[in-house]
C-alpha cells in the first residue's frame, strides 16, 4: 500500500469492488488503488492466492483487474478516469455473462 506525500490536485472518483475511491487525474489505476489502501487486486488462478502489483511497469501481470466490464486489464498501464468501474479479478476470467456464456 502507498501513502501519498503530495495532495492530489485534480481529483477524480471511481469505484473498486463497489466502494468509491478518490485519485488524482493522471494516476495509473494500480498506483491509485495502492494509495487508496487496496492491498489485494486479484486472486491467482492456479493456487487461489492473493496477489497485488509487483512491478508497476507492465511486466509482471499481477495487477490485473476488471475495468468497465473488460476483464484482466493491466491496471498499471491504465490511467484512472472519472466514473470508472473497477473490480478485482477472482481467479480465471469468465467468458460472457453469468449464464455461462
Amino acid at each position: 500500500m502507498l501513502l501519498r506525500i503530495r495532495d492530489a490536485v485534480d481529483k477524480v472518483t471511481f469505484t473498486f469492488d463497489g466502494a468509491a475511491v478518490q485519485a488524482a487525474r493522471g494516476d495509473t489505476l494500480a498506483a491509485a488503488l495502492l494509495a487508496a489502501g487496496i492491498d489485494t487486486f486479484r486472486i491467482s488462478i492456479v493456487g487461489r492466492e492473493p496477489r497485488a502489483p509487483y512491478c508497476l511497469m507492465g511486466v509482471c501481470f499481477e495487477c490485473l483487474v476488471t475495468i468497465d466490464d473488460i476483464q484482466n486489464r493491466q491496471s498499471c498501464l491504465v490511467e484512472v478516469q472519472e466514473g470508472m468501474v473497477v473490480t478485482s479479478q477472482n481467479g480465471a476470467r469468465t467468458i460472457g455473462r453469468d449464464d455461462g456464456l
Binding site: 502507498l2 501513502l3 506525500i5 498506483a31 495502492l34 494509495a35 509487483y54 512491478c55 508497476l56 499481477e62
Partner: peptide
C-alpha cells in the same frame, strides 16, 4: 515474493515518480 506488500524496488520508484507516494508501514 508473491505476497501482496512485496514489490520490486523499481515499482516503489515508479510510485514516487507517478503519484508522489511512498510505501505505507
Amino acid at each position: 515474493w508473491t505476497l501482496p506488500g512485496v514489490m520490486s524496488a523499481g515499482a516503489a520508484q515508479i510510485a514516487l515518480k507517478t503519484v508522489s507516494a511512498i510505501p505505507k508501514g
